[in-house]
Design a protein around this nucleic acid. Structure first.
Lengths: 133, 133
DNA sequence: GCTGAGTGCAACCCGCGGGTTGCATCCGAA
DNA sequence: TTCGGATGCAACCCGCGGGTTGCACTCAGC
């Protein structure tokens, strides 16, 4: 967990989309983690201790959140001497955004199809009614 | 909560983006709710009772989940006689997807800027070192 | 008016996750 | 080598949310 490799990306994007998406969504669901990501994006790189100074929680809480974010692939960690630097990673977020957009498009598609089918059925029924009447 | 208006959209898209996004993300973070949305998208329209038959949880659990989804704007409910029909709503999901894509782009932007700054600083330092040496 | 399916409401259980504290450990600098 | 800052680990607390059950209520159809 401490080491993800600098730029590999496989550990996140290579998983089944549903699982990767699940991780990202639950990670992003927590407001504190979103604040953490904001801070990280602003600083470019930071340690858990530094981040904790700017947040209303303990360092340990920050570490736990960073672990979740790292597991979701939203963050990478790298040891630098006696400290551990974390950095934001856009790939996983991009993948999830695309997944979400595709899902929304799919919903639109299905809704359109169902609506069309309903109208067709209604028209047919009306016609049948006239026929038997 | 039971009534959102047929196609208004303001109740979700009009809120502060952060809050709307928060709702959608926490709603989507739960696997059972995603399954619910899948079912709804497939059927186009369904009642809580019908949905519960196809899921390994009680109707009440489904109702609670639907309430969360409705609060997030991912679903709309409409009374039809003595039953309540739910339907999927793509707008909120689309909005969140766009928000996410923008965030990812922002991260990329900041990271690129920081990287550039670091390289510039490094070059300047190297030059200064040569100068004073 | 009666009956039953379909909902709404409320209380309750329980596990998980966010948060904390205390301490052991490690590593760089003097 | 010694000291202090930074991290890692483990135990613990507690509130929230997912899930259930039981019951009251409402509306369509007979």
């Amino acid at each position: 967990m401490t080491h993800d490799g600098p730029e590999d990306g496989r550990s996140v994007d290579g998983r089944e989309p549903s699982e990767a998406v699940d991780g990202v969504l639950s990670a992003l669901a927590d407001p504190m983690r979103r604040r953490l990501l904001d801070l990280l994006a602003a600083k470019g790189e930071a340690t858990a201790t530094t981040l904790a100074e700017r947040l209303p929680v303990s360092r340990q809480a920050v570490v736990k959140h960073l672990a979740v974010l790292a597991a979701a692939g939203l963050v990478v960690s790298a040891r630098a001497g006696r400290e551990v630097r974390y950095a934001v990673r856009a790939a996983a977020l991009n993948a999830t955004a695309r997944w979400m957009a595709a899902l929304a498009a799919d919903w639109d598609r299905r809704l359109a199809a169902i609506k069309r089918a309903a109208e067709t059925a209604e028209a047919a029924e009306r016609e049948a009614g006239q026929g038997t009447q």
